[in-house]
Design a protein around this nucleic acid. Structure first.
Length: 423
RNA sequence: GGAGGGGUGCCAGAGUGGCCGAUUGGGGCGGUCUCGAAAACCGUUGUGGUUCUUACGGGCCACCGUGGGUUCGAAUCCCACCCCCUCCGCCA
């Protein structure tokens, strides 16, 4: 949620930010107009309420029944006026709220301009791309040949874009999750295991609702929403709380499955397990003071990169352009790992600073020490990392000519003695 | 799912129509006392909105689980919902 104060004080800044996201800036005037109306109504309503309060107190004191009746009659008339003004206000406020809720965060000035992800700007590439003296296979061939990836049975159970991992494949995935959680925990992130189904207000708080409901699975009977990312429950962990400044920054890591309808991309990238309706992810999440969020962003990025390094995966970091930038983010960097079989950079992490955008929606504040007013915290999120894609890269990059795959050393503690996956 | 009990400020816990934004106790913070600490004593201690010739300041309004209703007036009465506890049922 954008700060309404920003519309009052610096409407140009808001227009500029929205324009960068290819949005119609007419909403800015609409918001300002509604805000103006709202404040006028509030003044009207509160003046009447003040009068009502004092009169009601007086009525309590009046002994003379005639005077009393007279006063009460007058109050009935005022009450009716108040009612209609209150109704007007109670209709306007949700409208203003709803309008604001549809507006994305303003992009940081440093975010490169661009229409879509093809215009993201690569910052650096780390690690050498693996070379082979044979033709490396893509995971959709490698996996089934190893017997660890079963597309047919996934489809049998749930339809297209679902698969089953077998034996060492399932174990490898589990090892990756454990490895990431343990590595991040050592870096100072506290692990959380959260619900995978949450209330509507929780999905709203992190920004997926109201605009992106069509990418979410929703149980209508119980009004449960299936989490599309751990970012959703982690944001609301401190919803409606006032935190101690001394407790900040608070850093969490969490494993969750993620559920997405992916209707938009229905025809794209169907091959393999790169994109599905269900996938696993380990997430990093930080609540911090506004003045620390820049530094925390760097930390998240470094910790995401570290996972790639430990797994010996070549990766590159790029800055998302305005056209690719997520709804809640002020700026975002992506980490992509190289997958030697499908010959592609796979996005395995998006690290975002949402500043106070989510904190406003979720009402997460803190007391600055010595200060007397609460402030909104800043929140940041990033994958650390997204699962099936890391699995793809590990399999494809570490394959040998005989079709076997060498497990990265970093995963040994969780692989139960499996160092090579063989057909 | 069934029966019963309950949701009040940081915590405990009063309050059954106007004197309640809320008694009291604890905690926190500031102070007195002390070499220092404890004890004792004094003071203070929520959030949000809005407004005022922008103030470490003042006014007004709202908030006693949530949303409606009754009333000149609701923490207090009525309705619906949510959550928690106990017992029964079911289960991992």
């Amino acid at each position: 949620m954008l700060d309404i104060q920003l519309f009052r004080d610096e409407p140009e800044k808001v227009r500029e930010g929205l324009a960068k996201r290819q949005l119609d800036t007419a909403v800015v005037d609409q918001v300002i107009e509604m805000d103006q109306q709202r404040r006028e109504l509030i003044q009207k309503v509160e003046a009447m309420r003040a009068e009502k309060n004092t009169s009601s107190k007086e009525i309590g004191q009046i002994r003379n029944p005639k005077d009393r009746e007279q006063k009460i009659a007058a109050m009935r008339i005022l009450g009716d006026k108040l009612d209609s003004a209150e109704t007007e206000l109670s209709e306007l406020e949700p409208k203003l709220e709803a309008l604001l809720a549809t507006l994305p965060n303003l992009p940081d000035p440093r975010v490169p301009l661009g229409a879509d992800e093809s215009e993201n700007v690569v910052q650096k590439t780390v690690g050498d791309l693996p070379e082979f003296d044979f033709e490396p296979k893509a995971h959709w061939d490698l996996g089934p040949e190893l017997g660890i990836l079963d597309f047919e049975r996934g489809v049998k159970l749930s339809g297209t874009r679902f698969y089953v991992l077998n034996g060492a494949g399932a174990r490898l995935q589990r090892a990756l999750v454990s490895f990431m959680l343990d590595t991040l925990t050592r870096q100072g992130y506290e692990e959380r295991y959260t619900p995978f189904m949450v209330k509507e207000e929780v999905v709203y708080a992190s920004g997926q609702l109201p605009k992106f409901g069509d990418n979410l699975y929703h149980d209508i009977e119980e009004d449960f929403w299936w989490v599309p990312t751990a970012e959703v429950p982690l944001t609301s962990l401190h919803k409606d709380e006032i935190l101690e400044e001394s407790a900040l920054p608070i850093s969490y890591t969490a494993y969750t499955p993620c559920f997405r309808r992916e209707k938009i991309s229905a025809g794209r990238e169907v091959r393999g397990i790169k994109r599905g309706h269900q996938f696993d992810k380990v997430e990093m999440y930080v609540f911090c003071r506004p003045e620390d969020s820049e530094e925390q962003f760097k930390r998240l990025l470094a910790d995401g990169e570290r996972i790639c390094q430990l797994l010996e995966l070549p990766y590159r970091v790029s800055n998302q352009c305005t056209g690719d930038l997520g709804f809640a983010a002020a700026y975002t960097s992506d980490i992509e790992v190289w997958a030697a079989g499908c010959q592609e950079w796979l996005e395995v992490s998006s690290i975002s600073n949402t500043r106070d955008f989510q904190a406003r929606r979720a009402a997460i504040r803190y007391y600055p020490e010595g200060g007397k007013n609460t402030r909104f915290v800043n929140t940041l999120n990033g994958s650390g990392l997204g699962l099936p894609r890391v699995l793809i890269a590990v399999l494809e990059n570490n394959q040998r000519e005989d079709g076997s795959v060498v497990v990265p050393e970093a995963l040994y503690p969780w692989m139960g003695g499996i160092e090579v996956i063989e057909p």
